[in-house]
Amino acid sequence: MNYKVWDEADLSAYLDGQLRSDQQAALEADLERDPELQRQVEALRRTAALVQALPLREAPRNYLLTPSMVKAPEKQSARPLRWSNFLVMRLATALSAAAFVVAVGLQINPTRMFLTSAPAPLQDRGVVLQEEVAQSSEAPMMVAEAPVEATEEPAAKMVEESLPEALPEMGAPAPEGEVLPGVAPSWEEGSSGGEGIGGGGDGMPGEGWGVGGGPAGMGGGPAEEPQSDVAALTAYTVTLEAGICAADDTDCQNAEPLMTPVALGAPTALVEEREVEAEATALDTGAPEAATFAVPEEPPDTVEDHAGPNMAAVLRWLTIFLGLSTVGLGLVTWWLSRQR
């Protein structure tokens, strides 16, 4: 007969008569000749007997059910309701947070969503932007929609004031008629070395766009002032690159294409006042992506002006509301989770 090494599971099952009959016979045979195995089985048997011998605790009361206890529909629905509330609150919090993020994103970078609905102010005023891109040797590529849209009353006034200075240096023909509104302020700043534009009183308070108008960046004496004029004109559409360029003239050179075409084009338009499909020309001459890129950079104030009543203000309030609601919903959700 083979001598099997019995494990404790076998011995335990043996005590309960749970071994197969052949296993049980084999174990009993081994028990007869193995005192150590006998001691093991006996120790387990006494342990089990000790536990089994202990009387059960008596139930402290009867647990009989009454009809009211088993009906209790509110008790049945209480938990699932609370649980579903928790899920709903979690979902609401997530949605609110997502909306808040989107709103903040719109605040930081207003999309063309607003601009596409905005009318072109130059056309509204009956002024046709004139452009001779061919003359603008340094930056022939673009006159985008953005500068057109960017023109504002304050800017227009500044253009009227500063235009006479710009024209002679440009060597452009004398204006036939009205002055094109829409050139942004402070060319003096631009010509004197790349100051940030847009800081003061021109409907763009608080915006930090630095427009580099330094001579080195524009590469030509006569062109400097017009360039900075146009830089002002495009200040409303200046991109982040323009902001970067304020800190570095070298970067400004890189950012020039965004501004210079407008700079050269707008004064020219002022002078000759020809009817020009400025956008088409600009796009034909190059850098179409610049035109499209300038669009999203429309500053909020311009958006506000052009995109209907207080779009930006509504957005601001919506953002605040969403932020508060996200916090509130998050707290409620947290509280519900604690209840669980």
């Binding site: 404790e8 599971a9 335990s12 387990l44 006494r46 342990t47 536990v51």
Partner: peptide
């Protein structure tokens, strides 16, 4: 089986507390 074996070992450590009739 593991529960019984564990109980056995634990009770062996406190044998003096067990009734004589149940001494392991």
């Amino acid at each position: 089986a593991r529960a019984r074996a564990r109980m056995r070992d634990l009770l062996l450590e406190e044998q003096e507390l067990l009734p004589v009739s149940y001494r392991l």
